[in-house]
Nucleic acid binder design. Sequence first.
DNA 1: GACCTGCTGCGGTATG
Length: 815
Amino acid sequence: MAAFEDTNGYRIILQWMEDKGNYPFKFQVDTWKKFGNGYSGMVIAPTGFGKTFSVFLALISDFLSHPERYGTGLKMIWVTPLRSLAKDIAKAMQEAMDEIGLDWVVGVRNGDTDPKVRQQQVKSMPEILVVTPESLHLLLAQKNHERFFKNLHCIAVDEWHELLGSKRGVMIELGIAQLKKYVRKLKIWGITATIGNLDEAMEVLIPYDIKKAKITAKEHKKIDILPVFPDEIEILPWAGHLGAKMADKIVPIILNSRSTIVFTNTRSQSEMWYQLLLDAYPDFAGQLAIHHSSIDAHLRIWIEENLSNGKLKAVVSTSSLDLGIDFKPVDTVIQIGSSKGVARFLQRAGRSGHSPFETSRIYCVPTHSLELIEVAALKEAVKQKVIEPREPQVLCFDVLVQFLMTLAVGDGFMPDEVYSRVKQTFAFRDINDEEWKGMLEFLTIGGSVLKSYEEFHKVVITDEGLYKVTSRKIAMLHRMNMGVIVSDAMLKVKFISGGYIGMIEEYFISRLKKDEKFILAGRTLEVAMIKDMTVFVRAASGKALVPSYLGGRLPLSSNLSVFLREKLSGALNPKASEKELKFLHPLLARQEERSHIPKDDEFLVELIKNREGYHLFMYPFEGRLVHEVMAALIAYRISKLAPISFSMAMNDYGFELFSDKEIPLNEENLNRILTRDNLMTDVISSINAAEMASRKFRDIAVISGMVIQNYAGKQRSNKSLQSSAGLIFKVLEDHDPNHFLVRQAYTEVFNIQLQEPRLVEAFRRIENSRIILKYAKTFTPLSFPIKIDSLRQTLSSEGLDARIQRLLQQANRSG
DNA sequence: GACCTGCTGCGGTATG
């Protein structure tokens, strides 16, 4: 295989890829050599640059050049976050092997792998093994697993940006730390899309003091961002999210494209848009599909295949198609509503024109008028290449507990030796001795509080000091519950005649009245019966409800917020290129006339008095999540001035406090209400942190193995999980409030739920802004959408008692 | 008058 020596090998592989119609990511020759010279590192390029395959070939060429250096068996581990990616990359790798004429085997090991293949692999590992983070840990949970890695040379982590910010990323960090025990000179490579914190991303994956290289694509991905305007501004609703009226505008876009992905933000929205498109253009029947996480996996695979081979004209989807196989025929992407962030926007745009030579085309369809400003903001952010960072998770003790159990289930571990390795990871570099001691105690006797419960005595210490699981049952349950993804329990939906359709939330079905129909995967269904967590249905027709799911909310990224405020600030005098802002002019003019358009260094507060009562609006543009906390905080601070209770509403741009009493707010005290002083103390007083932590603790309890989710194929219901986790949380909080898992729950509440760093930053900005207080008689273009939101749901700051009292008084008065 | 939402991802097996 001398042909692969040095630069020659580089050229041959490039040629070979081009002959195959692939688009190689062109490493420089000196870069190419780094793969062979013992470097670790990070490769950064947009999707569609063939970076995955290029890295693979670069690593392989090293093996080929010096076959004598490598023994038999497993040489390379390839980690992908998705099972579906694993299948495809392994196939491509195997093809390459065959063509190069090397009899290496590429194996896949994950939940889809046939048990027979699994057994075979244990007997004789393939040369290259493609795994998920979870499967990697499952390997480490096997007895005598060290032998698998005897000749391991390198590990590559694909789509690292996807894993970095999550607990799955922490799993990778720990997995690599363990592999480094077996392979001292392990090469570690990460592959990532562009994100805001590339240096940190590399530091997290490779915190070790070894030769490192960062390799960035020079070529840039071309993107066409095309806003879709309605014929008149009146057609755009002032609030809302569906954007139904835009369907007629979208049909021709789909017809003029080869193949289109229509991205929506929620599962129910995708179901509705599927219907809207079919209604608008019935000939789409059979060429249109729908794809989201609650749809049966088989159906989703079928859709993905038909998207790849060009048989589908369009697919309406959620984030479920954000990642995945290259859908070559897709030349157009449509984003319905806000993409909420620059990185997600680029990711979705990159699904079309999937090659460095093609231009990605993405149409932005606003679902309400203010979203047009967001399009302008996105364009600017993309132009300036300001992409969100992925914040690495640190000190996730639940993941560490699980990892230690994994080792204990495998060959057992010596605490001091593991501790020194764990401390080298990015996630646990700040762990202290006390926390570590607590963790060991937790594994062996359940800690001081739970020690009287036998079930928490999982790990035994042998005479040699080895921490080990001896119970087969405990070992089995651990293997079955490995991973850090805690899913909500949902009901399966099956045809009574057979055939699985997807999943639905329990509460949606429970609220469904007799004879009411619902829609799933684009089909109208009626309930025949419910048995064993399964809803049996039959096909129906006519009016039907679209289920909603209690999913996570996509927060508006702070990057996008910055550009949003900037664009709004200059909205009345747009640049010639900003069609979006010109289109919005009538609406913006009205905002300026009735109230004010906040400039870059201003913070707008509106007080509106009308027949209903008194409304206070504030516009931080920090996204719903932050506004939720801010609204509670401001309500709390005002209520300290004078007893008053509010109902609250919010959207991504601002929030409302509403009261039937006059709000005691004026130019003088407004600064005090918006101060950064005592910020977190007031936040804690204004929310129920203990309740939030208790809810967060549910996931922690599952991941750390305190509450078992899967018992031999049976999944426990949501309620039962929550109640046992809640019980444990209460016991711990009462008797050991400093417990490392309790502390973690609070940290997660502050960092994730309350977004403390972002909140603090927002208040710092407000403090440095000029505060503009405006009184208005009617709702303004900015306030109206929030008011609409409050009609849907009202959160109340007042206690239940006070509220009942007031309702009673009202009732008495009117009676 | 304008409207009616809330993402994604994973996962058993031992031994002669």
